[in-house]
Structures are given as C-alpha cells and as structure tokens.
Design a protein around this nucleic acid. Sequence first.
DNA 1: CGAATAGTGTCTCTTAGACAATATATA
DNA 2: TATATATTGTCTAAGAGACACTATTCG
Lengths: 247, 247
Amino acid sequence: MASSSTQTDLQRYPRPSLAIDVALLTVVPGYRPHLGVVLVRHRNGDGGPGWCLPGTFVHEGERLADAVRRVLRDKAGLSGVDPRQLHVFDDPARDPRGWVVTVAHADTIRAEDVDTHRSSDHDVTVAPVEGTGASARAQLPDRQRTLPYDHAEILSVATEDLRRRYAEAPDPAGLLPEPFTLLQLRQVHEAVGGRPLQKDTFRRRMEPHLIATDDRTTGTTGRPAQLFRRADSRAQSPEAPEGRAQP
Amino acid sequence: MASSSTQTDLQRYPRPSLAIDVALLTVVPGYRPHLGVVLVRHRNGDGGPGWCLPGTFVHEGERLADAVRRVLRDKAGLSGVDPRQLHVFDDPARDPRGWVVTVAHADTIRAEDVDTHRSSDHDVTVAPVEGTGASARAQLPDRQRTLPYDHAEILSVATEDLRRRYAEAPDPAGLLPEPFTLLQLRQVHEAVGGRPLQKDTFRRRMEPHLIATDDRTTGTTGRPAQLFRRADSRAQSPEAPEGRAQP
DNA sequence: CGAATAGTGTCTCTTAGACAATATATA
DNA sequence: TATATATTGTCTAAGAGACACTATTCG
C-alpha cells in the first residue's frame, strides 16, 4: 500500500474538474461529398444559446472514452464510436467557472447513422466543414459565426489528424460500408483531404491495400465498377494504451 | 472546453487528482552516440526504492507544461525544456491510492546540460535506451528490471514520437548546438532512429534544410568538414502540395 | 606519401503524377 | 450507336539507395 505521506498528497492539493469534448466527423454524401462535424445545442453560454461540440464532465470511475460515448449517446443519440485522444487543454483561465481541464477527442461516424437520428432531434445537427487542419472552419447554422471555447481549435486538430490517417491507408476509419467502389473510396478521401485526387494515381496507391470481391456494381450508367474490401481489416493505430500511477 | 452545465456541476462531481510524467530524452555522446532517458529515484513504491520517470501532481492554477518544468527543476535540477503532450492515462484503477489521471509528456535535453548536474546529485541518472517505439527499453541501474507504473509505455510513445520528428527535418529538437557538421548531425539522427544511415543519402536529404556557414572544422584528422546551421529555424508544417510544372 | 575523413558523380529502382488509350456497361 | 464510367498502358520527373570516385587535411 501507499505510505501515509503519499496518501496525504492526494488530498493536500486541489483537484481540477475533468471534462471531455469530442469532434465527431463524418462525410456528407452529395454531388461532391464533404466533411461534416456533429454539433449539439448548448444553452448556458454567455452569448446565449448556440451550437458547440458535444462535451461533458468525466464521472468518478469513468474512462475518458466512456465519457465520450456517454455524451454522444445522451446528447446526440449516437453509439458505436471509438474515440481517439487528441490534446489536453489546460489553461487555468479557460473556464470562468473554475479550474476545468478538458481532453479533446475525435472520432468518425457514418452519415447514415447521424441522419436517422437527426430528423427526430432538433438539438443535434451536422455542420459542413471547410478546409482542413489550421484552416478548418465549420459553417454553423443560425448565423452563428464561431464555435465557443476551444472548440474551433479542437476541430482543427481533429481534421488534421484524420487527413494524415487517410493519406496512408484506404478509409482507415471505416466511413464507407464494404464493399465499395474505387470511386466511392476516392470521394471519401477527397472529402477528408479537402482536395481533388487523380483517379489513376489514387487507384494504384490504394489497390495494394484492397481486396477485390467477386462482385461489380450493376444498374449504373457506364462500365460497372469492381467492388473492394479493405485488406488491412484492423490493426492500425499509432497508440492508445492505458495505465498507472505516480511517485 | 466543456459542457452546457451550470455552476453546480463543478461541485457536484468528484474530481480526479491530476498528475504529469515526463520522458526526458537525450543523446549520449560516445563511440556510437545513443539515446538516453533521464530517471529519478523514488522511494515510496511497493517494491522499495527504484528509478522512474520524473512526475508530480499538478498544482492549482498551474499549466501542465509548468508542472513538467517544475518537477524537472526540483527533482533533477534541469531547466529550459518545452514539453510536448503525449497521452493521457486514465484508468481509474491505475493508482491504488485513488483516482489519479496522468498526462504523459516528452521532451529533449542536451547531454551536457544533464551531466553538469548529475555529478552533484545521486538521485538523478541517465539510462541508455535500446530500440525505439514499442521495442524501446531502458537499461536501468542497480539491477532494476523494469520501469514502474506506465512508465515503460510512456518511454515507448516518447521515443516513437521523437523518431518520427527526426525522419523529416534536421535535428528538430535542437539536440545539437550550432554550428555542427553533417557527421555530428547524422550520428544524432542514427541515435534517435536506432539504425545506421548512409552518409551520402543523408546529406542529400538534409542539405536543403541546412545553411552552410563560412567555417569548417579544424585540427581534426582527415579533410575538414563544413559547418552548418538549421535553415528552418522554426515553423515546420507537414504540407504536401499537388500539381506538376508546366513544360 | 599514406591514412582518414569529407564531399560528389552517377547508376538503378521505385513511385507519383499526368495523359491517353482501351474496356464494358446503359440508354 | 452514343455516352458514360472503369481500368490499364505508358511516359516523365523526382527521389532513395547504393557504390565508387575525388578532395583535402594531418602526420
């Protein structure tokens, strides 16, 4: 067990409130598919009601990732996410209410999974995102100009993180249901990367990481397209470990 | 920032203790320079005294980076670091003393700056590190086998992070004092990367990011070497433009 | 001169990018 | 057949890697 001196350490120092925020990204289908971010309404901001990223305080005994899942379930009715840690925002003056440290997270979700719920909930929306990385900006509803708190920065880091992951492998976040065509895959990558990609170069770079199925598209105009699955089915994360304590 | 909550929320929920740990890496000079990590003695572990990464609780009103600087100053007498966040370890059962969330950090320091202090302090040492990333392991003094807590994992993430940064640019962490020769630079990169590099390929890849000074080495055996400085003194953005030159 | 290290020439191989030809479906 | 999309062939340029040659110092 711990010595008495360390025991007191846990109580000697004031403790911060611990929160999480999450940038849940998706690709919105359409003429040119584009990146979107899930927003929820908040009511107690200084500037009145508005849209922001989902966030919550972490409960005792709760994992950060579980707090992210909880807030997405409670506030947006979404499930099945696997959030990634992005960054800790720790400015003591960040929150006028007191000392609140927040851990920014990111994840992705398929557009279909958001849409089914959005129709029945006016407190959840998907805002289009323009640009990626430092230039990423959400086009907010209701003439709202900016995201509150550090949320714009979280969105920047989240889109940049996603862009980097998509530069290497085909749809590593699984935004596309299998099987898919190379056109569908390329459109998702264009949305995530924020720029057009050439179809031949893209095909040659992705094909080593894909497995062709026996099927092709049918009923569409033009030549039918081969349907593929991801070859690297799983096992592809920089790090996400767990752990331990303190001297 | 956090959530659509009221003043009472800050007090309604229990709060975790917030800690930091830091993997302070350096390159130890010698026949073949190699990676090292700064360790401090701790006394209150279950298994008696031993070596571990420096860590501390975060004080109220303190930034995480400042807590890192404080612990390095107080426990190791080191200063002038600029820590990078790596990962949050949040398992509620991590620490038997209670709910302690720790933010792992990494930074680098020049070997000279450690050595000057180490001679006068028996509670600080630099342990050689073998391997990089998941296979990174510190060779501990006093027949100690493993690092306590999650510290081995923090070391893995820290070395991997450093390796990735050094793959792009010349000595981005500034481990080498300017000016330096290409041999010195290559040895540092070999230590960080954990593998030998070819001198001609290395030179050609680094030269665009270097500025030759008017000086050369003198007094050494063999042909004198050109002395360089880093060209990208600061600011390094991972951009990947597209398009081709016109005929 | 000989040893030792620095720096360059050059060849090969791989890959991204661009353009264009060919293949196969629907209307 | 006309049209639209998928797929492949091929050329070019850039870059990594490897090998070997030249350059310049000290003793």
